[in-house]
Amino acid sequence: LPHRKPVSCSAHAENKVVTLLLGAEPEKVCAMPDPALPDSDIKALTTLCDLADRELVLNISWAKHIPGFSSLSLSDQMSLLQSAWMEILVLRVAFRSLPCDDRLLFADDYIMDAEQAKCAGLLELHTAILQLVRRYRCMSLEREEFVTLKAIALANSDSMHIEDVEAVQGLQDALHEALLDYECVHHSEDPRRAGKLIMTLPLLRQTSAKAVRHFCSIKQDGRVPMHKLFLELLEANI
């Protein structure tokens, strides 16, 4: 097949959008499981929900640093985040887990293997996220690609409540172009690499939907304390 030649393959110049995205990456968050609580499924889920809540605060601040995101209306910013928040969390866990064998690195102090996931009732989700990790590991996903793909996942969240569709399309185009430009400069040996990365997004959406369903049922159960932002976003997906 003929190769598509990206318009802006700026020979070896670093892509400005990718550079900004690298600079916007939130700092690591520690899980800090409560040492006073005995090990149990409730403790594991409480730790994860607390970690997710703190990461969400950072992810909202991160979104503001995506070039062009803050130019969208507040309503459209909210709609994108309400649709994509779990995809962003899952993609971050998947990227962090790339160096781990069959374990998920939720945080440096909270790494979960299949046995621990089973005890927490999270085996299905653990398996699904590991499928994503394997996909990225096969491609040797780079940090630059990860940050760009994460921004694309947000801009491409398919919310049904977008008011200015053209503006959101403009953001998608700018981020897509940044990915094409990066791949053109750094992976000219594989002209389909950008497409391969984009083609991982359906699995990310599927895994994220699984996670939302699971945490919604935990919420219904009422045994795990959840912070307000996490609850607010879970409710946005019901």
């Binding site: 070039p67 062009g68 130019s71 607010e232 976003l233 946005a236």
Partner: peptide, 20 residues
């Protein structure tokens, strides 16, 4: 959207927006 007060507040408060 009325219900999503925390998200709304965090979006309004976060600093350093970047324009294209």
């Amino acid at each position: 959207k009325e219900k999503h007060k925390i998200l709304h507040r965090l979006l309004q408060n976060s600093s350093s927006p970047v324009d294209l």
